[in-house]
């Protein structure tokens, strides 16, 4: 370029203003990134087609939510994604690709972007509770080649569900349809789900259809953190009945 004169008054050369003033540069970067971000994010909130119309997806039960909190606390998302992408090999391995509707009550979502371990968006119902217990205690006892750390303390730590109702109240502010009744009965619902039929199972299932209820801990309803996590894992990817789901209607 034969540009020997730095002060040529064309618009093309006004970028010198950004280059010479750090504050103006920072403001410029913020504006540019904000526009990019807003254009990508905002439409997802107002476009009706973002979230598919499906049946069966319900908010997490208190016990599942407690398990989800443990999932987040232990950083499981660092190695496990919860997002089966619409690619042939993924669908062949994991099952139907994930729908936005399946994580519409997740705040924040657990899609993840890194798979050191396998995707677990559809792990629910794939293994027995006992397998999960063995695997959480020491993954190598069932998968010798696994590099996942063991989480033996989960089955030794009693589950603290005293505040799970408050978690649900916060989520209801974020748009998860928890009713006052659900929030009020959160603690007893968690106990009901984690034990064999104790008389209130029917009313629990009315609030949380198709939830698994069984004596998870195997010790008379004394719930541990592992029980909550297993209740959460056994739910993952099982809520939408893909035999009824219309792929073609939701292509976009």
């Amino acid at each position: 370029m034969a540009n020997l004169t730095p002060h040529k008054p064309s618009l093309w050369h006004r970028h010198a203003i950004f280059e010479k003033n750090s504050i103006i540069l920072i403001i410029g970067i913020l504006v540019a990134i904000s526009i990019g971000g807003l254009v990508e994010v905002l439409p997802l909130f107002y476009l009706k087609s973002t979230i598919e119309t499906v049946e069966g997806v319900r908010p997490y039960s208190p016990l599942e939510l407690a398990g989800r909190n443990i999932y987040v606390r232990e950083g499981c998302y660092n190695c496990h994604s919860q997002m089966v992408r619409p690619l042939r090999d993924e669908v062949e391995r994991y099952g139907h690709y994930s729908l936005a509707a399946e994580s519409m009550y997740d705040h924040p979502f657990q899609w993840g972007s890194k798979r050191t371990g396998p995707d677990i968006a559809r792990v629910g119902g794939k293994y027995s509770d006992d397998w999960h217990r063995d695997h959480l205690r020491n993954p190598r006892s069932v998968v010798p080649a696994s590099i996942m750390p063991g989480y033996p303390w989960l089955e030794q730590t009693p589950l603290n569900i005293a505040h799970i109702g408050e978690d649900m109240a916060v989520l209801s502010v974020e748009g998860v349809p928890y009713s006052q009744e659900m929030i009020a009965s959160a603690v007893s619902d968690a106990k009901t789900q984690g034990s064999a039929d104790d008389g209130s199972t029917a009313s629990f299932l009315k609030r949380y259809p198709k939830a698994i209820t069984r004596d998870l801990g195997g010790n008379g309803g004394k719930l541990t953190e592992a029980d909550a996590l297993i209740a959460y894992l056994q739910l993952l990817g099982t809520q939408v009945d893909f035999k009824l789901y219309d792929d073609k209607a939701n292509i976009r």
């Binding site: 619409p86 690619l87 042939r88 669908v91 690709y97 939701n250 292509i251 976009r252």
Partner: peptide, 14 residues
């Protein structure tokens, strides 16, 4: 083109 249509096609091909 959509990724969801593509995967349906890919699976049909399989």
């Amino acid at each position: 083109w959509t990724s969801r249509e593509q995967v349906v096609k890919d699976l049909e091909g399989l």
